[in-house]
Amino acid sequence: MYTRKKNIFVRMSENVNVQKALGVILPVLLGIVIFVLWQTQVIHKIFHVDVFTLPLPTRIVSIMIDNISDILINTKATVFAAAIGLLIGSVIGYVIAWVADRWKGFGSGGLIIVTAFNAIPIVALAPVMTNWTRDVSPDASVRSMVSKILVVMIVSIASMSINAYRGLTELKPYAMDMMTSYAAKRREVFWKLQFPNSVPYIFTALRVSAPNSVISAIVAEYFAEYIIGVGRQIRENIVLAQYSTAWAYILTACIIGIVFYVVLMIVEAIILKHRK
């Protein structure tokens, strides 16, 4: 029988290994293209900007290297606010989901209120939190940290409570009947069925809220009293027209966001290894 030989590109694109490799190669290529266009000032010509407001990549990197100790101090403050806020917010979100499942009457109504909270923009939230935390501590650095954590926390609650609620309630058909037939207690149903079932949903929530927590911490820093953090440095340096330094901190912010996401992906891959 005569079969038409497929063209080499079609055959290659059907190969699984080629597909996997392309998933890495294509984004890297795009990055290189952008870098080249940026470094050769093609981007500057297209968008009519000068090298002062949009410094060249090599210049940004050299500023980062020169200021590495300052950058690390500010990174630490931002990462701390983002991580702690994310942790506390996620735990609160999970507890809300648990309550919504445990007392069904509260359920959907409570979750709608939580979602509504999520719609408040961070720029509106941050000054309110700074004002609220005025009397928390005589130390401005502590006050600011608490207000930043509160902002991140509120932003993290909604995505966790909605996803965790699904994780607690979207069970396999008959799973609840099965537990009932074993005369399982409510505590056993939770720990042996509902909680493990909700774990993939926890990761779904974190995929959204982990990068969000970094952005929220940075925006909250704009409004914070105490001058520290990656976000605050971006603002301060733009105000002082030190665009190269500002861009060094913008790049730092990107790196923090990516690191948060990658760490999450690795943890997820380990924990959910057998579920795929």
Partner: peptide, 10 residues
């Protein structure tokens, strides 16, 4: 024994 096996994936 139910219509589906209801095994816990984890």
């Amino acid at each position: 024994v139910f219509q589906s096996p209801v095994l816990l994936d984890w």
